[in-house]
Nucleic acid binder design. Structure first.
Lengths: 257, 257
DNA sequence: AAGTGGTCTAGACCACTAA
DNA sequence: TAGTGGTCTAGACCACTTT
């Protein structure tokens, strides 16, 4: 015999099954707590516990005053852009627009960016990657990226002071520099090292981005090195998991067919 | 005036602050529900609601019979392995061992793999990527990867029947073929397209991998194309976000210094 | 046996949304 | 205003772990 299932798990399993079977489609409203309470003859809190399980699986969402509904996944694709890749996609990118905005438009949505620049104490991880001496500050260029009016991605670029000082990197606002900020600053990058992790949203992110409590985030960290193999930039890109899909493409340079 | 904070948020904020300040370190036990109940003079359920918020942020973990404790993050690094990259790391990989096992050993842990092969109806996404005709089956090679005895990663490779039939791909068990299974099957891959997403664990994954209810997963999907640009393999790699960090490295082939 | 968290009840009042 | 989910109370019993 299978282990005895709790009532909340039973209710959750029933709803899960109906959602998977397509009885409720993405975006559809689900039964109210009071309906399920009388339907199953339990206390309301037990029904709430069942819905909580589905919330935690990301299957369902809730907002005060609204019904529970089946969660919709419509991630936007994001290409971090490698050397080769940028080259192959360059012609699809409108002159003067940055790659991210062009990608969003190509997917039929309206991009907008807010950018500010400040000088800060680097977070520990950034200091370690940039080999920043203790107590030394760095320049951070914070981009808040909106799609159709909603904040969906944060992209913070950190530069050592000596790299950024007196260059267009220090210019606030959504400036567009053909060839890129690093090139304009005279720092050609030769190597990238990327980290990609999945983690839950922090409280601060929930508030800033208006997220439900149970939101997984995807975080992409890139360290760029110049031709002398010194770190010149750290970019941390963060977005809710249901809003962003990282895509990349590799072609073997040794195989010409 | 800031919006009125609820009691559960107050308690959660207090605990969060103490954790961030280092008063409780990763792995440390946290106050019991009954202690906090009397300390704050609230009902036990309110304290539980506070801890639930921290669980949902991934800050805290709980197990029946144990105290709540501060969650420990110790992700293992995983290199998906590109053409160039594999070449540059090849010498660090012991002869005969697969790249994943070697990477785990290099990080000071004990790898183990269970592999089985079966013929199945492909999931919709896989069928779409492999351009499998309706009703046609595919071969799936399922790898369950353990580190120090704990299941931490699933890696399922899907092959069209005509690619896998009569090749070592069909061999069950943790076989090691120098040069790789695809090469042995006579299918040189020229191009990869990768997708990386973050999502919550499904119920099935929670059970299979023994996860807490609030676990973000990271999923890496790679489609491999042969020299004729036809899809020959889809690999789906899945792991809990706190157990796996995807790493990759790119070097600009055009810059020779 | 004592202490921990997990499940469940049966209420109450509040905040927000839609009819 | 009626209906929705969000917060909260004050209990009870159960499952699991440690002493």
């Amino acid at each position: 015999m299978p282990p005895q299932q709790s009532v909340q798990e039973q209710i959750a399993a029933d709803l899960r099954h109906k959602i998977m079977a397509g009885e409720y489609e993405p975006g559809d409203k689900l039964p109210s707590e009071s309906r399920l309470t009388s339907q199953y003859g339990t206390a309301r809190n037990t029904v709430r516990a069942a819905y909580l399980l589905l919330l935690q699986e990301g299957l369902v969402e809730s907002r005060q005053g609204h019904s529970y509904s089946v969660r919709v996944y419509q991630p936007l694709d994001w290409w971090p852009g490698t050397f080769e890749h940028q080259a192959s996609r360059r012609d699809t990118v409108e002159a003067g627009a940055d790659a991210w905005a062009a990608d969003v438009k190509a997917q039929g949505h309206e991009p907008r960016q807010e950018v500010d620049v400040s000088i800060v104490v680097p977070p520990p991880r950034v200091a370690a990657e940039l080999k920043t001496p203790d107590g030394e500050l760095v320049v951070v260029r914070r981009r808040r990226r909106f799609v159709d009016g909603a904040l969906v991605q944060l992209a913070d670029s950190y530069y050592p002071l000596e790299v950024a000082n007196g260059t267009p990197i220090m210019t606030p606002g959504d400036v567009v520099i053909p060839g890129g900020l690093m090139a304009a600053a005279g720092h050609r990058q030769r190597r990238y090292v990327d980290d990609i992790i999945s983690r839950m949203a922090t409280r601060a992110e929930q508030v800033l981005m208006g997220l439900g409590a149970v939101t997984p985030m995807i975080e992409h960290l890139r360290v760029g090195y110049n031709v002398a193999n010194q770190p010149v930039r750290v970019i941390i890109t963060t977005a809710p998991g249901d809003k962003l899909r990282i895509r990349q493409e590799f072609t073997d340079p040794d195989v010409t067919e």
